[in-house]
Nucleic acid binder design. Sequence first.
RNA 1: GCCGCUAUCGUCUAGGGGUUAGGACGCCGGAUUCUCAGUCCGGAAACCGGGGUUCGAAUCCCCGUAGCGGUACCA
Length: 462
Amino acid sequence: MSIEKRDLRVRFAPSPTGALHIGGARTALYNWLAARHGDGTFILRIEDTDRERSTAENVDQILEALTWLELDWDEGPVSQASREAAHRDAITKVLESGLAYHDSAGQEEVSAWKEKHGNDRGYRGTPDPSGEGAIRLRVPDEGETVVQDLIRGEVIFVNRSLDDFVIARADGSALYNFAVAVDDAEMGISMVIRGDDHLSNTPKQLLVLAALGVEPPTYAHVPLLHGPDGKKLSKRHGAASVQELRDQGYLPEAVRNYLALLGWGPGDDETLIDTAALIEAFDPADVGRSSAIFDEKKLRWMNGRYMRELPLDEYVDRAAAFLELDPDHRLRIACSIAQEKAQTLAELWPLIAFLYEPPVDDEKAWRKFMKDDAAVVLGAAADALRDLSDFGPDEVEAALEPLPGRLGLKPGKVFQPIRVAITGTSVSPGIFESVAALGQEEALARIEAAGRRIANHPSAAG
RNA sequence: GCCGCUAUCGUCUAGGGGUUAGGACGCCGGAUUCUCAGUCCGGAAACCGGGGUUCGAAUCCCCGUAGCGGUACCA
């Protein structure tokens, strides 16, 4: 290639101090979408330089969450801790060039200084010839450091208000803002898409990059996500982690669609956008500037839409995996009658459990529906079903549908008792489909058993 | 305190000097004469406040206010 074009290289760089939460997932998604849209490289880097709080379990959780979301990475995961040698080399370099120095002041002295000055001007340390103390980067007193941000535009930080910040501990190990800048540079990251909470770190990283003589990447700081109360997302807000979303029966493609739309839109009124279309339309520069609140109700709705559009085979496979059932004929029947009703995979089980287990004992349903003419209804239903030679939904419907007219009862007075008889509850898929799905023998047995129960305990049922 | 970001229905958002301020979720009502869900139809619901600029401001400017983020030898 004669034309020099910088390759698009983006990274998602979580710190493994907890499970991947929804905000982090959205940041990962935006990076992934940007990479796939621009035919670039998506790199996963684990920012684990804080040995105290970083755990292997958390790393596994993050990888598992990204895998479940189907956000595949092209390089990594790279452990930031594994790059310690490179960080030390860079520290040595800025030390030797005089752009950084060991500070003679201890932590208490610095705290006292800041207390006195009210933190309204940047701290400047004093070089310590003995070479002990934290290593600080020299920040100019004059001028400003300007962040060119795809989303925020030009954000100006006055150098005077910036500290000579610590880039390495006294033992020479690099701190976050230094390590990030070095890694981004050496890994050839061309675009940094990350949470807004890093915007104020950016001038520091820019200063490090300048000290190293490296061109900075493009930045895009996306707004943070909040819970329904407007506060930072946490466990208190229900499903806060990707794992919780999975366990509640959401589909990864629905989660991607929903998360992508939290702060970004394709520019038209479309809300249901599959992943391919997301990739096609995504541009980090179009991400909005204000923070968004995670609304699980809308996710539920969206998930329901995706659930209903799944081909039955696919639906059965997903249900089998989620419910840990065999994807057999019975599950296929169950899914076919319940697909249009469930918003999440977790909602499926209560609708189809009657095909796997005896009717549940829902006292309220019994009290409400198993009274008055229920015994007569069940007797008539059993008679109508007993002699059927074919027991498909159509045959069952043909047999049961005339009952209200024949008995002179409202449809609800007829079908609810039958429903309670076969499922134990007042909520189920369509009654004809449900009866047929159970099979003639079992359906009759349950209806007759319910009839006997009413006859034996008329007062309890009434 | 200081630095920074943000501000349209409850929520996600579109729009952007003159509009009936549009859509989606949720909510309310109606329809689908088996429940629930779904689906369809209808409805209520918003430009943070104050000053400017202008014939005209939700839109541009300034100042407030509020929310959020940062302010570690954490990431």
